[in-house]
Design a binder for these strands. Sequence first.
DNA 1: CTGAAAGCGCTAACAG
DNA 2: CTGTTAGCGCTTTCAG
Lengths: 337, 337
Amino acid sequence: MATKTTLKGIAEHLNLSISTVSKALADSQEISDSTKLLVKTAARQLKYRPNAMARGLKSSRTNTLGVVIPNIMHNFFAKVIVGMEEEATKNGYSLVTCISNESLEKEKQSLHMLSDVSVDAIIISLTSETQETNEIEHLKDILHYDIPLVMFDRANSDLACDSVVINDYKGAYDATAYLLKTGCRNIAFLSTLNNTSVGNKRLSGYQAALSDYDNTLVPKVVYTKLTSLENDLGTFIDNNNIDGLITTDESSAIYSMNTLRIKGKQVPEDVSVIGFTDGNLARNYFPSVTTVKQQAEIMGKKAVQIALKNLNNKEQHEPVQEVIETELVIRNSTKTI
Amino acid sequence: MATKTTLKGIAEHLNLSISTVSKALADSQEISDSTKLLVKTAARQLKYRPNAMARGLKSSRTNTLGVVIPNIMHNFFAKVIVGMEEEATKNGYSLVTCISNESLEKEKQSLHMLSDVSVDAIIISLTSETQETNEIEHLKDILHYDIPLVMFDRANSDLACDSVVINDYKGAYDATAYLLKTGCRNIAFLSTLNNTSVGNKRLSGYQAALSDYDNTLVPKVVYTKLTSLENDLGTFIDNNNIDGLITTDESSAIYSMNTLRIKGKQVPEDVSVIGFTDGNLARNYFPSVTTVKQQAEIMGKKAVQIALKNLNNKEQHEPVQEVIETELVIRNSTKTI
DNA sequence: CTGAAAGCGCTAACAG
DNA sequence: CTGTTAGCGCTTTCAG
């Protein structure tokens, strides 16, 4: 095996001092063009690559961003990561990604680890557990050490840091309004996001749309989990006559449509269905699913943009919340107007 | 803001030397129990966390693993990452993940970057471009610097390093054999993986199963891309009478079923369909899709296990290829026997 | 049992 | 224009 060439290596090779080599590679004006050329060609020949750790130790800049997401199997988060990766790479940064798996404990560990490896900033979407318990000491610690923190999607308003969120309220409002416009009057809201900021906002949007349209309409909410959805929705359907259904994520929409099918209901003839998250499933199911599209990639890019901005300008500022609008993608699981 | 406590900080706090503190925290036998206690409590109070960069610079161990995947939106890779993350965390390692986006250039950059940040080992699934061009100098460089390298799923046999792959041949063979057993005789193979190792192995399995069963059966292969699948398959169906279809990934199976529906073919009555990758789509489509399940999480875990083993035992050894068997998950897109 | 000192690879102030 | 030196935070001999 070969050992990696260091500044010292190329310095010895050329009979120069380490600092001359360092400066030459950094294109310092102190160095003559001739030696610059010399050094640079030698560096190329010897396949020199700067050691990021050593550089980071000195400059306390690592050009890495830490990311914590609750779940990578979720289409939405995967897409966010794609956006982040693209934007980070474009700016010479790389991503260290942790999966908290919806566990507060794992979230804490991840933050510790990211802090240990001196990432320049941290981007996080909170676990449901964090949002339920509102335990945020570990996040305050990060802020306390002056590591730029930006939250995305699942944010916490008690924390003095920037965030980028979806306009979940309006997304749900628009979805509900659309169903009303197509003639639905018994619209249920099925949520798998019981205690998250996101779930609450969508619920409010749904409720507001109903009462804005006709305040005699009563909201009907089903709280469930993916694992018990077919049961919960099944019994709900047995006891309630609905003609519209809004679900808080993509899989729920699909599961719901399967349940409706089993119960002998046609989609969209008997019941219109709208989901959130515009992924493969929604696009390719039969019938294809009308969906509130969250601009996941844009969100990812925005999040790293904000992180990089904060990192380059560490002055205190009021927390800024960037809101990304949704788009209702109309497909075949809803009636046409 | 507060500044992070270092060994120096807690040394000054206790009027001890830095090295004593270091040893105390490392539970060295050179240190008395009393000072150990002293140091450890102080460390906890001052929220001391070792600086991973400094430690890494000294010990040339960073406890991080670099991962390069071609595409994170693909369910299979996302699942592999979940498995890797779990196994890595369990062993005190964290993951730096890069997305090569099927681009050779990006793959090279990613490897450089991972080498720069001194990851302890690298786990990679090659881009299709890398496999097509068979350009592997950048991978040899990694080996050359004695950084343990393990390839998964999309491997290259010209490279002297361990790998873990799916038994793609047998997966396709079994799928084909199953269709034959259910009475299909005109089985087509639709591939979106034209030039990858994986695609070739699946094709061979399909061909072998056909000729093993009845060597008058002729293989029918459709090469396509997701973007043009509906067209390509559509014209193929117009010109060929098929009763079975095997696709090389999940989305292709779904797209194909949509195409078949458009062409007036019933699944599975007229045409049975089997896909690869057992994800949400396959499970929840209607009809649910019979699938060759790749044990993605297991694959991820295995890959990091191998990486960690190599990293702890850097002696040369013959490359080992771990083969993970597939499982045919029978659902409703195929006829029953 | 505790401390001093060297050095990992790099940057940057300071001399020459 | 080039070189010497100190130091980032940590580990690890080697002395005391």
